[in-house]
Each structure stands twice: as structure tokens, then as C-alpha cells.
């Protein structure tokens, strides 16, 4: 198939590993899905300490399950990316550990306190849900298929984040104030989650033309703001003055782009912010620490090929 034919046929779940797709498509899809898979893993990194910090037994269980879900999503997405035949999972995990792999801007910032947890679990996950829901229509069938499960589970995560937010915002005055402060810190990052406005995005045109993506950054940001500004206000959060957000007559929003720190955003996009070094460094260190196990497993698997015990994963 050539690019023109791909563009012509592009539609929801149109292409699968049976199709002979041009390298350009397979590379673009790999880049997109790898980014998504990496983000699942790095998001889990950020949230992991809060399994321990959770202030009730049920919350602890829920946090552990959520982190586990994110790893499961990573696993699923790497599989969907592998099926494009460009990179295998090991290569993608190596790239993540050595700093070549890219992931969501929000996961490059440290998260220090429990009051910050709903910023990820409610707002960032809510934003991700918006995007992921549209990806059920992606032209790469294995990706769209993975989104069915991911969206289903993310629905629970957003509820979990929302419940924590509600609890904090109906808690003591100090809890409310600290949550508001956390919100002010995270809000611009959350808006940047959707990237710059369309004209600054370098990858959009092609991915849209071949049906990998179905909505633009602007459309997604708008849909998110439409849903989440009222939700934030409902829980008593005040929307910060910057970035300035204007509501148009047609109900859409316009974000004053100059109010956002795009230098920081693009530094993060290059994995070059202090938080990027911190998070990737941790990932690298912890992965190297268990390298001996993977080596030992390689030996075991080549010796006992075909009869590897199922339960030992």
C-alpha cells in the first residue's frame, strides 16, 4: 500500500497487521503509541509513592490497583506498538530508561504530597480519557482495541481521583488551601497536556491524514475545559488567573498561549527538564538494578523453551 492509498482508506480500525503498510505510517504509529505506553509507565512512577502515603486502607488498595492498571496499560500499548514491526518492547523499554523515550509533560514534574494526587488522578487522567476516547477510532486497529480496555479502567481512576479531590475539598481548611495551592501549580501543566495550538504541532498533519488521530489538540483542549472547569468549580477550586482563558460565545474556550511557559514545555519534550532527569534517572537505576534477573530469565527461557511456567510472570 502506498501513502495515498492509506490516506484514502484511513478510517476507524481500518488497518491491522495483515495490511502491508508503508514504513512512514508504521513509524508514525509507533512513535505515537510508544509515547503513550511510556507515559503509562512514567505516570505510574509518579504515583507509586502514594500507595505508601495513602491515609486509609481502602485508599491504599485503590492506589496499588491503579498503579498496577497503568503498568497493565503500558504492557498492552507496547504490544500494540510492537505489532507495527518497527521496534520490539525491549527496545522501547531501553529507550525509556536511557532517556530517548518521550512521555507526557505532566509526568516530568515531581509530586510531593497527597494533596497533589487528584491533580494527576482526576485532572490529568480526565484529560487523558478525553484523548483516549477519540483514539478508539484510530486507524491502527490494535491501538484502538487497546483503548477499549484502557478507557474502561481509566473511568475508575478518574472516579478515584475525584473522590480524593472531594474528600480534600470538604476536609479541614488547611486541606482545602493546600489543595487549591496544588491546583494552581498543576493547572498550567494540565492545560499544556494538550500541547501547543495546532499550528505549532509538528506531527499532527500526517497522523490526522492517515487516521491515527481523529481530533486536533485544540478540539481536545476545548472539550476538556468545557467539562473540567465546571467540575473544578463544583469542588470549590478557583481557576487561576493565568493562563487567561476566554470563553467564546459558542461555548468554546481560548487559552492565552503566551501566558504558558512554552520554553519549559519544549525543554520537557526533549527530556531535558530537571524533573525529566530525575524521573528518567530513577527509572534507569531501578531497571539496571534488576538487569541480573532478566539475564537469568534469558538463560532459563532458552534452556526450557516452550515449557516456561505460566505462573512465574
Amino acid at each position: 500500500m502506498d501513502i495515498e492509498e492509506v490516506k484514502q482508506r484511513a478510517g476507524p480500525r481500518e488497518f491491522s497487521p495483515k495490511d502491508d503498510l508503508p514504513e512512514k505510517y508504521r513509524k508514525a504509529a509507533t512513535r505515537m503509541i510508544q509515547f503513550h505506553a511510556n507515559s503509562e509507565i512514567m505516570g505510574a512512577y509518579l504515583e507509586r509513592p502514594f500507595i505508601r502515603e495513602a491515609p486509609s486502607l481502602d485508599r491504599k488498595l485503590a492506589f496499588s490497583a491503579k498503579v498496577q492498571d497503568e503498568i497493565g496499560h503500558g504492557q498492552l500499548l507496547y504490544r500494540a506498538a510492537e505489532s507495527l514491526g518497527i521496534k520490539d518492547r525491549e527496545q522501547m523499554l531501553d529507550e525509556l530508561a536511557n532517556g530517548e523515550g518521550k512521555f507526557l509533560n505532566c509526568f516530568h514534574y515531581p509530586m510531593d504530597s497527597w494533596v497533589e494526587t487528584p491533580m494527576i488522578a482526576f485532572f490529568v487522567d480526565g484529560a487523558a480519557m478525553r484523548r483516549q476516547a477519540t483514539l478508539k477510532q484510530s486507524s491502527w486497529e490494535p491501538y484502538a482495541h487497546a483503548m477499549d480496555k484502557v478507557c474502561f479502567e481509566e473511568g475508575f481512576h478518574v472516579k478515584h481521583g475525584e473522590a480524593i479531590l472531594y474528600e480534600l475539598m470538604t476536609g479541614s481548611k488547611s486541606e482545602q488551601e493546600r489543595t487549591q495551592a496544588a491546583f494552581e501549580k498543576w493547572w498550567p501543566r494540565i492545560i499544556q497536556f494538550f500541547g501547543p495550538t495546532d499550528d505549532k504541532s509538528t506531527h499532527h498533519d500526517f497522523s490526522a491524514d492517515v487516521g491515527l488521530k481523529t481530533m486536533t489538540n485544540d478540539e481536545l483542549r476545548n472539550a476538556f475545559l468545557n467539562a473540567y472547569i465546571p467540575k473544578a468549580e463544583k469542588y470549590g477550586l478557583e481557576i487561576p488567573d493565568t493562563p487567561r482563558i476566554r470563553e467564546n460565545d459558542d461555548g468554546t474556550y481560548e487559552v492565552e498561549e503566551d501566558d504558558l511557559d512554552w520554553d519549559e514545555f519544549f525543554t520537557i519534550a526533549k527530556n531535558d527538564a530537571p524533573g525529566s532527569h530525575e524521573q528518567i534517572g530513577k527509572r534507569n537505576r531501578t531497571q539496571e538494578a534488576v538487569e541480573w534477573v532478566r539475564n537469568s530469565m534469558d538463560g532459563w527461557e532458552s534452556k526450557s523453551a516452550g515449557k516456561t511456567p505460566q505462573a512465574a510472570d
Partner: peptide, 17 residues
């Protein structure tokens, strides 16, 4: 739970979790 996101493979991570 300290092993979550730190186990040798994604599969072993899920199992210990």
C-alpha cells in the same frame, strides 16, 4: 508494593502487585 513499577518485567510487576 515497593516493587510496583520496579520489578524486572512488566509481567512480574503485575503479579507481585
Amino acid at each position: 508494593t515497593e516493587w510496583q513499577v520496579r520489578a524486572p518485567t512488566l509481567e512480574s510487576d503485575l503479579a507481585l502487585a
